[in-house]
Nucleic acid binder design. Structure first.
Lengths: 254, 254
DNA sequence: GAGTGGTCTAGACCACCTT
DNA sequence: AGGTGGTCTAGACCACTCA
């Protein structure tokens, strides 16, 4: 009742929109630890009666906190405090399972599907194989402490990894390539950009389509310069933090 | 008029929310090139009359597109199609001015302030100097094709760079450290995570507080392992794409 | 079945940008 | 001065989750 609606009395202009004030109150609760990671927030209608604001205003505050990565939602269930992000270092590629565990969290992997398909032109181009060459596509979902945080689709050249499907694909695929097929990654190319989660990824992560996310594309090369793994990952944006530690190439100045 | 409001007749349940359908129409226009980068979208009220939806619904579609990085807003001016992102490679650190230009865009830098301040405990810890040691803090704003895309705050140890303020700080600071002070970066540590733009950064970028963004923290070391540059950058999330190309450390398997 | 978030309407006043 | 987005209200029905 502060701005719109029938005039009642005069008030000083608010220094800050209501929804940001509410955001700050909730953010403070999270910072204080009064709201612990994983804990559920009061329902929107409850916040409404507490604060007297319209539901739309409440939701604006919640969206804001979501964009900041402080809270997340479970569809039609409620809003929850986000756990801290894990740090992902593509240079020390130790595999999801190990680096998450190293950070004191509980990783889990679920292989959603493994299919063998002919390479589309774009994929053939990446692998430098003929279009139509057989490729394995592995779809996996990975979780931290029981919350699904990423879905990925890994493509590998079927010719290089005969019988791949016989192995347990819930661990490090890179490790399997090395141990069973003698394929070692000596170079990684990583592309990363903020995105909104596309429909399919959102579905698999159990979030609303369009939730902010992070796309990570990783291309792995062996010592002969062949692409041996092409991985497209969609992360919940509040779950990851990228960390790279690199030696600058000597001639890099400018 | 399709879902809420007085019942009029029966309709099949919509397969997709209205706002996503509108999103798709606009996204298609952008993909087609009917809406060019930098071009302004019709106003919200105009879209309202075109589509017959309530303004809130229109705005939901626009927010969605914003989260995806396809459009951005200029406060109280309108919605615009986002230009393509530039690729940022922290391993080939060539300086903003050069790598943006390399990608066929027009970079610009504006130094907002240079101050000399005593190191706070956290900063002192990073630089391994005594708390209270003198530091230079350079604030800059950088643009691409006339659009402000990032603000940064660079901290350097004043003792290592006497008279820093006498140089032109709109170019590559790394280059200045090298040419004038013999300080070469041999190692970079980069941390990156999605964030919402904090109040101060948002103001300097001329966007609404809470707009999605990307935080990049870069720590540069010289050959003696000293931190010679500590840089905290806030990017518009639709303006950047990170690319890293790295040789995997031999003992990294796992 | 009660409660949750998801979607939607139809208004309003405001601060600010643009011309 | 007119138009833009920014904020806000007060309702509604829906699909879905959860107990």
């Amino acid at each position: 009742m502060s701005r719109a609606g029938p005039v009642e009395e005069d008030k000083p202009p608010p220094a800050m929109p209501q929804y940001l004030a509410l955001r700050d109150r909730i953010a403070e609760g999270i910072g204080d630890g009064k709201l612990a990671p994983g804990q559920r927030l009061p329902s929107e209608r409850q916040l409404q009666t507490e604060s007297g604001a319209a539901r739309g205003t409440i939701r604006e505050a919640l969206f804001q906190l979501e964009a900041e990565g402080l809270i997340y939602r479970r569809d039609r269930s409620g809003w929850y405090v986000s756990p801290p992000p894990v740090t992902y270092d593509p240079t020390r590629w130790a595999g999801f399972m190990s680096y998450v565990a190293e950070q004191g969290r509980k990783p889990a992997t679920e292989t959603l599907s493994v299919v063998e398909v002919p390479a589309l032109p774009a994929v053939a181009d990446i692998f430098r194989v003929a279009p139509g060459a057989r490729m394995f596509v592995v779809s996996r979902r990975r979780s931290i402490d029981g919350r699904a945080v990423l879905v990925e689709r890994i493509t590998v050249d079927a010719q290089l990894v005969p019988g791949l499907t016989e192995h347990d694909l819930n661990g490090s695929l890179t490790q399997i390539l090395k141990t069973h097929y003698g394929l070692s990654v000596v170079r990684n190319r990583v592309d990363m950009r903020p995105c909104a989660l596309v429909r399919s990824a959102a579905e698999q992560l159990g979030v609303k389509a369009g939730t902010p996310g992070l796309m990570v594309v990783r291309t792995s090369f062996d010592e002969r310069g062949r692409v041996i793994e092409y991985d497209r990952e969609y992360w919940r944006h509040d779950a990851i933090r990228l960390h790279v530690d690199i030696n600058v190439q000597p001639a890099a100045g400018g």
